[in-house]
Simulated assay, not measured.
Amino acid sequence: MSDTTRHAPGPATTEVTIWSLEQTSPADLRPATAPDGDLRIVRSQVPLPEFSRFLYTAVGGDIRWTDRLGMTYAQWQEALERPGAETWVAYENGTPAGYVELDAQDDGAVEIVYFGLIPAFRGRRIGGHLLSYGTARAWDLARRWPERKPTERVWLHTCSKDGPHAMDNYLRRGFRLFDTRTVTEPDVANPGPWPGADLR
């Protein structure tokens, strides 16, 4: 007697490579030249979940940033209000172009938790300058948060879902690879800044 039971296929998955990079001295930073034009980088000093969620979805929607999409308003607020958390936003001609989110950790490390540009602003030499500026703010973060230890290390991770120029930008800015791992993640649709907004 043959087994004719059919099992429904499981959810599709994707293998993702994660690279972790670091700087261990402010002297490691190799700043990019600032692009021409009206580009300003400003710290968002009011913890505002609505604005942070906009930045997160607008920057990460086409590269499958999904880990924060299920967070409640209160969870966003908690993340933004933790001591040593900072969001630095790049504006071109008054329009948000991208951002860097920093997280000061108890061991003297500062993580660049999120970094990226809204798609319309990519490929215009803004990313190198924004990363340079955000990394410099990670190194001097304790000046604005005297209760935090002086920064001894700045680190971040990027992955194979990120844009094709992400790794090169990090290496050019003086970050060094210290860990590589591969994980399996659910294969999700690009969420875009709002449902159905993926234009690719």
Rank of each mutant, 00 (worst) to 15 (best):
T95Y: 01
A97E: 07
V100T: 10
V100G: 00
V100D: 00
E101N: 07
L102A: 05
L102V: 11
D103L: 15
Q105T: 07
D107Q: 06
D107H: 01
G108E: 07
A109N: 12
A109Q: 14
E111H: 06
I112K: 00
I112A: 01
V113W: 11
Y114I: 00
Y114M: 10
F115H: 04
I118W: 03
P119L: 05
A120Q: 15
A120E: 14
A120Y: 05
R122G: 06
R122S: 11
G123E: 09
G123K: 02
G123W: 11
R124I: 08
R125E: 09
G127D: 05
G128L: 09
H129G: 05
L130H: 02
L131F: 10
L131P: 00
S132N: 02
Y133N: 07
G134N: 05
A136W: 13
A138R: 02
D140G: 05
D140C: 12
A142G: 06
A142R: 11
W145M: 09
E147N: 13
R148F: 04
R148L: 15
P150Q: 06
V154T: 01
V154D: 00
W155E: 08
H157I: 00
T158E: 00
C159G: 13
K161M: 15
K161I: 11
G163C: 00
G163M: 05
G163R: 03
G163T: 13
P164E: 04
H165F: 07
H165D: 12
A166Q: 06
A166K: 02
M167A: 14
D168C: 04
Y170C: 11
L171A: 10
R172H: 13
R173P: 00
G174N: 06
R176H: 13
L177I: 07
F178C: 06
T180C: 12
T180I: 14
T182E: 11
T184H: 14
T184K: 07
T184V: 14
